[in-house]
Amino acid sequence: MSAVLEFVGVSKWYGAVLGLRDVSLQINPGITGLLGPNGAGKSTLLKCMTGEVRPSRGEVRMFGRRVPDPEVFRKLGYAPEIEVFFEELTGREFVAHLAEISGFARDEADRRAAAVLQRVGLESAMNRRVSTYSKGMRQRTKLAQAILHEPEVVLLDEPMTGLDPLGRAQMVALIQSIGAEGRTVIVSSHILDEVEVMTREIVVLYQGQLLAQGDLHAIRGLIDRHPHHLALRTPKPRELAAALANEDFVVALRFDGDDRLMVETRDPDRCYSAVPRIAKQLGLPLLSLTSPDDNLGAVFRYLTMGARGGAA
């Protein structure tokens, strides 16, 4: 079975400016987080999928067919980053309009528009003009138009932008529910925490290049230039530190407050199993054992530092 989305050696130049450089990747069903700082090429990558941007080199394939292809676009839902759209129309008319363009009959388009706007929580505002919508409502409207025709692939460009914390939580839940339906959802974002809540599958772009792709934890494991950090909480951290100092998997130890010990290791699996054992041997209670850098923020930082040639 071929991948839903496939980039094969895709490069894109805007005149002298590089948008993407030799990107090859495959994306499959489920939610994938598309990450990268501003100018990394996230939007260009998405636009290559929608056919809006033609690669200067290489090709993009969706369901095995080369993009752009009208048949492929029937299976695609896209919520662009823009916030201004047909202001004179009501939310319901706007979504119904795009449903009709997607090929639904007028009545069916209106029915679907009402249903999908209800799903995204705009049932009470759907008959108001878009010009009166807040940023959050616009984001929901964009999401609604992206999923109303039941596409298999949903591309969301910065869907959290402009949302308040509650709105973000609701948007995350919505996106999770769309992904749980078995669709291929690609979410571009620079808000790492929310991407991490949504998915462990990530694609990291940096300066137009593909920096990493795959499961977040596995990617972290591949970054061997950076020791993993473990945070231990115990009433007597110095006793535990003395014992751990003899272990060859420990690279460095640091005290952080009265009851907290930071351990740097290049072999986190051995460390995870050894620390509780040693604490038990010493008769020390181990209050917590966490990994502060096994998260998206840290991985992203390490990856982009590496790409910049930053110090480990």
Partner: peptide, 18 residues
């Protein structure tokens, strides 16, 4: 739950489109 793997396993959840 969608499977995840660094090897890029195909995760078909049998979504049926319109």
């Amino acid at each position: 739950k969608p499977a995840s793997s660094p090897a890029g396993v195909v995760h078909s959840l049998a979504y049926t489109r319109y």
